[in-house]
Design a protein around this nucleic acid. Structure first.
Lengths: 218, 218, 218, 218
DNA sequence: TATGAATGAGTCTTCATTCAT
DNA sequence: TATGAATGAAGACTCATTCAT
């Protein structure tokens, strides 16, 4: 329908090249994310990133002035903002807060945790000390909104008498820590250690279940 | 009599080439731990490690053949075997399992978590992918014994009717994840992020409290 | 018209970053041969080789992964196969075997001995003990074929009744030793020792003449 | 008889240590000669030399200020002056000049060529270019006297009508080259190349035989 | 004298970055 | 835009040499 007016035998390569022109930064950022997460910032060579993205070293520098810029761009670009949607869901959620919490965590796992996107957390945690601005950026764009969302959920539970009163500022970290752990696990430990078989899904349910029980009003 | 006639504060500079073969490795490993944890493996220069240990570059290579060897030695040397003592305490512990669990976690925090030693966890998690043998070593020497200890505690709770039945293999990760998070937090996030003020001590108590409640038999 | 308005001698500096990928390895091998022969393997710095070839240190490593690889490549590359041609000449030679032998030696001197290529022999003899594979390579590619050629010549002389019977396997070394000596002389002794004036050409003739006489049938 | 006055039970170690004190430079020079010949100057570490001599690195520097000094001392010390004796033998030799020449070469082989001492020749030839003074020293102390001796022998043959007239200055190199070749062979090629089985003794006889025949008056 | 721990200048090698094409 | 040859600053590692004991 859309491409009716396009010449039908427009050769593939031309098409590809055209699309690629736009896509290249994305391909580069994708490759960079994978490699930075897998091997660390320093151990990743720009040439590898370029190769994985299917371009030459020189081309990479056409889009990113320095390796650091590439790194920062990786962080920035992969912050698909889920919070508006999540806040929306939170506002209109009908069930109990326990269900809500379980849903929120599962939702994170499905949409981020179990995705290459969770590599971001590993990245920030691992390389952060050498990139303070990145940490700050991440804190502002991800951590703070995340904590705010969790805090609101916990507060809802307290307000509705489902959860007993608690210091929600502290309690949110029980959820944050879970997210951190699963992110690190997926990208650091599990790839190396084939022996240990943690089932992340099972852990998530068991863990959240325990926390909810622990928080529930007597 | 002791140092009356001698200038009291000459010692510091005097003993430059003093032979302290025994002390050297420890000093170097200490410096290396600090710098590896703070800046990462690649971003740490051997000369910096040597300087922090108060020796020259060449001296470091007298004790560690390569930078990698130094790294592995850092991992190895900091594995002060806490487990025998902990297992001992576990065996002779008199109180309830809830108290025991709280004590175990607090004990970890006091003796390791709140110490430079917890940098090890960050190190392994951050740099592990480039050093598979190190990860394996850590899994065998630290992770596995740690999980075994936690599992035994949980099982004790179940056996004594304090905790409700659960899949202990999965539940231990609720404790492991806490340890991971606090280790990463201390060495990655908190140093960069002065804004966020997580009180680790408060979090630990709140979190463990919630978990225990969640696990307790109705 | 050609370069009226342009400064005529700008070319030299202009083509600095000119791409000459084809030419590079040859230039580097040339420089390396000279320096290795003159100063020895260890005393030659890769930067010197690069400088003599007119490129930077880094460029050298674009073509040769390590200094050792460069060394081996020097050996390999300078083994211009003279043997097919020489064998050809041997087969079709019309004159006496004495003439043939004199011609062969003179030919070696003109085409190799009196050339930078004879540095190869010095190289292998001097540095060989640290590069066993290189020696083996040289033995197979140069020494063995060389001895075979000489042996064939001597045998021709015997068969035709020009030379008296002899152990040709041993006798070839009378020729080999001459080649060795002249190679070493040219690159080791003569450069240092201006006092001694050996005329290699005269020596070669005198020496070969004596040998031929010594071998001739009574 | 000689040691009558010495305490019979003077313990071994004391004796040894005493002797060693004097011997140490010799042991060091011996070790250095072996290693320099085998591995080359640069590839030989002073610590290896010390170890082979059974002393510590520091001790070596008590006797030789620098590695270069050690090298020069090796050259100097191993020049046991055979020429007075050889000149003596030459003067009083009764047989034919052919016999004399064969005897001289064989004598060199037995007393030097087939000895570690011939490593000196390899050393000078291999490392000479980096040590011009060493080459000069060797030329003056070894080469020149050697050529003079050979020249005298050849001249004797001519004077007695055994050899035909020749340019003796050039002809001596036929003998010198033989010595060079055998020295290099023993220390460079033969150790690496187990396949090629040159019998040096056989070669020497064959080669000298040919030369003598070649020089003999018709 | 003898030792061997310590030093640091010197070298190989890597890799982010540039730039002529 | 895209390429990839070229660069050179930076860092790991070596080893002759020193020196306190």
């Amino acid at each position: 329908m859309l491409s009716q007016s396009a010449p039908p035998n427009l050769d593939e390569t031309a098409h590809k090249r055209e699309r690629r022109k736009e896509a290249r930064p994305v391909e580069l950022l994708d490759a960079a994310l994978s490699l930075f997460v897998e091997k660390g910032y320093a151990a990743t060579k720009v040439e590898e990133v370029a190769a994985m993205a299917g371009v030459s070293k020189g081309t990479l520098f056409l889009y990113f002035a320095t390796k650091q810029d590439l790194f920062k761009a990786v962080i920035r670009s992969n912050l698909a903002d889920h919070f508006p949607a999540w806040n929306q869901e939170f506002d209109s959620f009908q069930g109990s807060t326990s269900e809500m919490l379980a849903y929120a965590m599962q939702s994170w796992w499905d949409r981020i945790g179990n995705t290459r996107a969770s590599g971001m957390t590993k990245l920030v945690a691992s390389e952060g000390s050498n990139f303070p601005e990145v940490v700050e950026f991440y804190e502002n764009e991800v951590m703070r909104p995340g904590r705010a969302l969790f805090k609101a959920i916990l507060q809802r539970g307290i307000d509705r008498g489902e959860f007993r009163p608690m210091d929600t500022d502290t309690a949110v970290y029980s959820l944050v820590s879970t997210i951190f752990f699963l992110s690190m696990w997926r990208h650091s430990l599990s790839p190396c250690d084939s022996a240990t078989t943690l089932n992340p899904q099972a852990f998530l349910q068991s863990h959240v279940h325990a926390l909810i029980h622990g928080w529930q009003a007597a």
